[in-house]
């Protein structure tokens, strides 16, 4: 059984069937990609996993526990972190503070009134934050305002913020959307490095075939809200149904 089990999920927006009977199983320590043309329901599915949307029917189990009905912060505390399509970071804070916040969240839970401690006195958390920034090659930028980072650096920072929590499942929503080829390749290298170094499961929603085929262990193809096929990348490439629904269109 996978770490994430999606069974029979349906989601309707008015007359539109956004998700129709989606089943998905993500195996632990694998990279699972979910691809599909625009409007296939990829983002809806992702939003159902993190508590932003609640499916009409079906179940979403993470590590044997249902995530349905839980708020996003509760789901995060269960061990699911999410990287957004456009990097969501704390723009008014410094890079270092951006990384400290998830460190506190991981240690102290959803709320703690630590009004009389000092951030810099939390030695072990500071070390964790510095370690992840060093890993991500961002340690020189620790005192910068994160809003002034380049887009690529914002993405790295967001990744660092997610990874420092040591999530069991990392969800990535089009991590290379709107990036130049060179940046895309950097992101691929970064993700590959993360995959090799850490015991982490990743689910990637992606448009870019190049990214998907260079990273994924398994691929699910969504079209019009339903999974067409699920298989290893080599088989997906030549699959006639996929060609028809997705790749064929692009060429």
């Amino acid at each position: 059984m996978g770490i994430l089990e999606v069974k029979g999920v349906n989601k309707r927006f008015g007359g539109l069937q956004a998700l129709g009977d989606v089943n998905l199983s993500v195996a632990e320590n694998s990279v699972h990609a979910i691809i599909g043309p625009n409007g296939a329901g990829k983002s809806t599915l992702l939003n159902c996993l993190v508590g932003k949307l609640i499916p009409d029917t079906g179940s979403v189990m993470f590590d044997g526990q249902s995530v349905l009905g839980r708020t996003p912060h509760e789901i995060n505390q269960m061990g699911i972190s999410r990287v957004f399509q456009t990097p969501e970071i704390f723009g008014d804070l410094t890079v270092f503070e951006n990384v400290m916040i998830p460190c506190f969240a991981r240690r102290d839970g959803a709320f703690r009134l630590h009004a009389f401690e000092t951030v810099m006195n939390e030695q072990s958390l500071v070390e964790q934050a510095e370690e992840i920034l060093t890993d991500m090659n961002m340690i020189d930028k620790r005192h910068m305002h994160s809003a002034s980072l380049s887009r690529g650096d914002k993405r790295r920072l967001e990744m660092a913020m997610c990874l420092v929590q040591e999530p069991r499942l990392l969800l990535l929503d089009e991590p290379t959307a709107g990036m130049a080829r060179a940046d895309t390749n950097n992101t691929i290298d970064l993700l590959r490095e993360i995959k090799e170094k850490r015991d982490i499961t990743m689910a990637i929603i992606e448009h870019d075939m190049h990214v998907v085929f260079s990273l994924a262990d398994r691929i699910t193809v969504l079209a019009q809200g339903t999974p067409l096929v699920e298989d290893i990348p080599e088989k997906i490439k030549g699959h006639p149904k996929v060609q028809e629904a997705y790749l064929g269109q692009a060429q």
Binding site: P72, H73, S81, E88, F90, I101, A105, A110, F111, Q165
Partner: peptide, 11 residues
């Protein structure tokens, strides 16, 4: 700064 990020950081 960003409540969305805060929620998805478990806070």
């Amino acid at each position: 700064s960003n409540q969305q990020r805060m929620r998805y950081t478990g806070l």
